[in-house]
């Protein structure tokens, strides 16, 4: 075989000049400029900016005079913030459990080759198409103590019936939960249903041959197989919970009193209502920390294992 030691650039009749590295694939790079700008400047830059300014004395306007952890100390000594965090924890816990259980149950029921699957699915999913504002306002009306659900039940004879979550500080978060679950479970059901449909038909055949009951097959065989779908659902629900804002604004406006305040609303009030920017930055940084706490185990589960595998 011929061994020639001519380098590519020594080829005297090279058909094309090699462009410099920066200009190679240039149309692709130009086309991606909006993405690069959004990812780097808006998302990354914006986040860093807010985190940095959360350590300043910014009030009416952002200014770089350092305050150390003062904003965070003020934040965590604020009654409203503590209530917000508690509310989010309550809402988050029940929303997570409720959405997963209801979503999976509905998906499993729909997966039983039933008639009218499309109709049921449409009914379960349509709330997801609506704005949280619409959802909040409808449920505010249904839960209206004088004219809504409570009144209907009382008129039916149970005069002692009492269900007025939106005016009862102790259970107001459950009033929000009813609306939140109503809107959000359809999505999870859809994802779960897609997951169930992705499971090999032969698994069901094998379970039938082995004489394992339907419910037992779901619990012992199917759910463990759907781990990735559950992880995805968990992340989606988690990210949604932290962002909880519109629903509260529409359904309760944070009331009664401050009993249904949530962190996102605290941030908005501090930044755009109270001209208390430093508090807003510190509170939103805490929200970021919450998301990171949710995401790190997920990222570890999703990507950490594969690298060593």
């Amino acid at each position: 075989m011929t061994i020639s030691d001519t380098r590519p650039d020594a080829g005297d009749r090279a058909a094309a000049r090699r462009p410099s590295r920066l200009f190679r694939n240039l149309p692709s790079k130009i086309a991606m400029l909006p993405l690069i700008f959004t990812a780097v400047v808006v998302f990354l830059g914006g986040t860093i900016w807010t985190v940095v300014y959360s350590f300043t004395k910014s009030g009416l306007l952002p200014r770089l005079s350092w305050a150390g952890l003062d904003q965070y100390e003020r934040l965590w000594s604020s009654r409203k913030w503590i209530v917000s965090i508690e509310n989010l924890a309550i809402y988050g816990f029940f929303s997570l459990i409720g959405t997963l259980v209801i979503g999976f149950t509905l998906a499993a029921l729909l997966d039983r080759k039933i008639r009218g699957e499309a109709v049921f699915r449409s009914i379960f999913l349509y709330p997801f198409a609506l704005s949280f504002i619409v959802t909040g306002l409808v449920w505010q009306w249904i839960l209206n103590p004088e004219l809504g659900l409570q009144n209907v039940v009382r008129e039916m004879g149970w005069t002692g019936f009492s269900f007025d979550p939106l005016n009862n500080p102790d259970i107001v978060m459950f009033g929000l939960l009813i609306a939140g679950l109503w809107q959000g479970t359809g999505l999870i059901m859809c994802i779960m249903l897609a997951g169930l449909r992705g499971i090999d038909e032969d698994i069901w055949k094998a379970a039938r041959v082995d004489g394992i009951g339907t419910v037992k097959t779901y619990i012992r065989v199917i759910i463990p197989m759907m781990r990735p779908v559950f992880v995805t659902s968990l992340v989606l629900i988690g990210a949604g919970i932290v962002k909880l804002y519109d629903l509260v604004v529409a359904q309760t406006s944070g009331g009664p009193g401050i009993s249904s305040e949530v962190p996102a609303k605290y941030v908005m009030t501090a930044m755009f209502g109270g001209q208390n920017l430093g508090q807003g930055f510190a509170a939103s940084t805490m929200m970021l920390v919450m998301v990171v706490i949710i995401l790190i185990p997920w990222a570890y589960l999703e990507f950490g294992g594969k690298k060593h595998g």
Binding site: T38, F43, L44, G45, W49, K243, A264, M271, T285, L295
Partner: peptide, 17 residues
């Protein structure tokens, strides 16, 4: 980076925007 950004609460980026 863009996908990570999708999980950051909007409130964190609002004021810089």
């Amino acid at each position: 980076l863009l996908m990570i950004g999708a999980f950051i609460p909007y409130q964190v980026m609002l004021y810089p925007i």
